[in-house]
Every structure is written in structure tokens, then in C-alpha cells.
């Protein structure tokens, strides 16, 4: 049976190299969306947003924002195609980006 939860994850780009990163449960930044903390409640989403602003002020990451995401069978993925491409890599170069390492819950960027 498929289980599906909707919520939000916090993403940003690492300042030094631009790498797309996700805020984890332990308030660190991970390159893997699989590590992202999925926040379901509006209140915890606001807290997540706040953490992003703090992290930006700390100059570790830049451009932090909340992304709609879902957890399907235990794996987190972005719901919108734009964010899915961002978390995986270009659909036209599957040899590039995070998709190479098989992160992203093994979802294709499209579909």
C-alpha cells in the first residue's frame, strides 16, 4: 500500500559552491533530499523558514526557501517538476547532478 504525506522541505544553495542542499532533522544541510526533514504542520513550516533565514545570515547557504514535497513510501520528493529537476539534475543529462548518485528516492525527475 502506498503511503503519502504532503508537507514542505527547506532547500537552499551552499554559498561556496552553489550545491543544492536540504535542511535535515538535525538542523544540518545535506546534499541529499533523502535526508530532508518534511514539515507537515504550518507552525513547524514557519519554524523551518526561520531556520533558513538564520542560516542565510550565517553565510553558509543562500536563497533558502520552502518547497512543497511529499513522502511516498518513506522517500521524500518535491511535488513540482521544477523542484524535482532541481533536486535531481537536468532531465536531458541524466549523467549529471544528484540523480547520478541515485538520491531523490529513486524518482525520475519527470513522472
Amino acid at each position: 500500500m502506498t503511503t503519502k504525506e504532503l508537507g514542505k522541505i527547506l532547500t537552499a544553495n551552499r554559498l561556496s559552491d552553489g550545491e543544492v542542499v536540504f535542511l535535515t532533522r538535525s538542523a544540518a544541510w545535506s546534499e541529499r533530499i533523502d535526508d530532508a526533514v518534511l514539515s507537515i504542520e504550518p507552525q513547524s513550516q514557519a519554524a523551518l523558514q526561520e531556520k533558513g533565514e538564520l542560516a542565510e545570515a550565517g553565510n553558509l547557504v543562500t536563497g533558502a526557501y520552502l518547497v512543497e514535497a511529499e513522502r511516498v513510501n518513506g522517500y521524500v520528493r518535491a511535488t513540482h517538476i521544477r523542484e524535482r529537476i532541481r533536486t535531481l539534475g537536468p532531465t536531458v543529462r541524466i549523467d549529471l547532478g544528484k540523480q547520478v548518485e541515485g538520491t531523490g528516492g529513486a524518482f525520475a525527475a519527470r513522472g
Partner: peptide
């Protein structure tokens, strides 16, 4: 200066853009 935190992203953005450096979907 940006990496040290002496410039904010808002300040740095126009400076990096004037040197052709964008932040795109996957990286700079």
C-alpha cells in the same frame, strides 16, 4: 568578502552578476 560574510547576498548579487555569475537551478 562574500564568503567571509562581509557582504550580504543582496549586496553581492549585483556585483557577481556584473561578472556574469548567476545562481541557477543546480549551481552557479
Amino acid at each position: 568578502r562574500r564568503l567571509r560574510g562581509d557582504l550580504t547576498e543582496d549586496e553581492f548579487k549585483p556585483l557577481r552578476l556584473m561578472n556574469g555569475l548567476y545562481l541557477q537551478l543546480h549551481a552557479y
